Simulated assay, not measured.
Amino acid sequence: MSAYEEAVLEMKNIDSLLSQGYDIAHVYENLSGMFVELKKDEERENVQLLTADARKYLSIKLREQAADN
């Protein structure tokens, strides 16, 4: 899979969870990538982002979420 295809899949995964009503709750990064915890009521989902484009995309979504609150 190309880097572009991988980034698109990671961004679609983020969009899918956000459209289901999940909010970004916690983000942390280490040498293995960026880890994002999303929550919806008592439900939690964890996503690992490996591509730089998906990480940038997440930062945009995080700013949008902050502006909405």
Rank of each mutant, 00 (worst) to 15 (best):
Q65C: 12
Y28D: 14
Q65G: 12
S16I: 01
K12S: 11
I14E: 01
M1I: 03
Y28S: 15
A67W: 00
N30Q: 11
M1E: 11
L38E: 02
L31M: 14
L31H: 15
N46G: 13
A67K: 03
I60C: 00
Y28C: 12
A3S: 12
S2R: 12
E29D: 07
D41T: 04
R44D: 02
R63E: 07
Y22P: 01
D68M: 08
K12I: 04
E29S: 06
S2V: 05
A66N: 11
Y57N: 03
A7L: 04
D41S: 06
E5Y: 11
I24D: 14
N46K: 09
E43S: 14
M34C: 14
A67C: 02
K39N: 13
V8G: 03
S32G: 14
S59H: 07
D15Q: 14
Y57C: 03
R63A: 09
L18P: 05
L50R: 12
G21R: 11
K40D: 06
L17D: 08
V8W: 06
E64P: 01
L31A: 15
F35Y: 08
D68K: 08
L38I: 01
E37M: 12
A54D: 08
Y4Q: 05
T51M: 08
A54Q: 07
A7T: 07
L17N: 12
L49E: 10
L17R: 12
F35P: 02
A3Y: 13
E43G: 03
N69M: 05
L62M: 09
G21H: 13
V8E: 15
S32W: 08
L17A: 10
V36C: 02
E10M: 04
V47R: 01
V8T: 08
E37A: 03
L62W: 00
V36G: 02
K56Q: 13
A25N: 11
E29W: 04
E29T: 11
E10N: 08
R63F: 00
E29K: 08
Q65V: 00
S2W: 14
L49H: 06
S19W: 04
T51D: 14
A7F: 05
N13P: 01
S19V: 01
A7M: 04
H26L: 10
Q48Y: 01
D23Y: 12
V47W: 01
G21Y: 13
E64V: 06
E5M: 11
L31S: 13
L17Q: 10
L50W: 03
R44W: 05
E29C: 05
S59D: 07
M11S: 03
K56W: 13
L38V: 01
N46A: 05
A66L: 06
V27R: 03
A7V: 06
N30P: 06
N30V: 03
M1G: 00
K12F: 10
E10L: 06
E37V: 13
A54H: 04
R63I: 08
K56N: 12
L17P: 04
L49T: 10
R55G: 15
D23V: 01
D23S: 15
Q20D: 12
A3T: 12
I60G: 00
N69W: 00
K40V: 01
I14Q: 01
H26E: 13
E29N: 04
D53K: 07
Y57M: 06
M11N: 05
K39G: 06
V36P: 01
S2E: 15
H26K: 12
A54Y: 04
Y28M: 14
